[in-house]
Design a protein around this nucleic acid. Structure first.
Length: 256
DNA sequence: ATGGCCTTATGTTAAGGA
């Protein structure tokens, strides 16, 4: 079984690239972030023609998430229980016995901003949601754009980024708290090339210079740890014309 | 050597992203 996550930075713009990628990587399920589409504009017919059922949850201009799967997802939940949130950031569903949580974590803008306060409240609600899903499902996968670089080795210039958004102790403590709940960073189960990033700024020739961050993650529950066969970032789509600034991350599980 | 982006919208500048 293969699962993936990709922040497409506008599904309206990136749909052709997504369809190309799915044709080359026929994963069982993929979660998308930053679809930036209201629900009436979601391209479900095109995706169904490509072999994917979809659950989607969007809004105008910003945010928006989706869960695409070969078999229809069940028990679908939108956003976080207990958090009144006008922003469409989370979609949860069961695919082939795996409880998949796809999430677009808030950016947070700057550690002293209102948006950072919102990010912390959102993260509190996410922790509860993950705990709740873990109490009900042994096989949980939390994946998406976390907007958190968990360690200095996930940052191209850790000195410059020290204490900056994505790298604050508070954000990293939340990432660690997810691990403490029994979630495992699948990417780090394997030896990886140094300077492996999932996001590169559009500016400053950042991709060409490989100046990026690893902020897109796939966490699996402890019960799935032994089933993880591979986890990799696919940099190739970042070389496309008009690319997303994020690369997809792919997980291979030893499950049918 | 230097500067250098992309997307969306009550759009032609501003805000947000990261």
């Amino acid at each position: 079984m293969q699962l993936a996550t990709w922040n497409v930075n506008s599904l309206g713009v990136r749909l052709p690239q997504l369809l190309d990628w799915l044709a080359a990587h026929p994963v069982d399920a993929i979660v998308l972030q930053e679809t930036k589409l209201t629900d009436d504009k979601f391209p479900h017919a095109e995706l169904l023609a490509a072999g994917y059922h979809a659950q989607w949850f969007g809004q105008k201009t910003y945010n928006g998430v989706a869960l695409l799967s070969r078999t229809p997802a069940t028990d679908v939940l939108r956003n976080l229980p207990g958090l009144a949130d006008e922003q469409a950031r989370v979609i949860t569903g069961t695919v082939a016995g795996v409880r998949v949580i796809g999430a677009y974590f808030p950016n947070g803008q700057a550690p002293d901003s209102d948006k950072f306060v919102y990010k912390m409240a959102w993260l509190d609600a996410l922790q509860k949601h993950v705990a709740d899903e873990l109490s009900r499902h042994p096989h949980v996968v939390l994946m998406g754009d976390f907007n958190i670089a968990p360690e200095d080795r996930d940052v191209y210039d850790p000195v410059a980024w020290a204490g900056q958004i994505h790298c604050t102790p508070q954000e990293r403590a939340h990432f660690q708290a997810l691990l403490d709940q029994g979630m495992v960073d699948a990417f780090r189960l394997f030896e990886q090339a140094p300077k492996s990033w999932s996001w590169w700024d559009y500016r400053n020739l950042a991709f060409r210079k490989n100046q990026g961050l690893r902020i897109d993650h796939i966490l699996v529950s402890e019960a799935l740890r032994g089933q993880v066969q591979a986890c990799a970032i696919d940099k190739l789509p970042r070389k496309n014309e008009r690319p997303s600034d994020h690369a997809p991350v792919v997980l291979s599980l030893n499950l049918v």
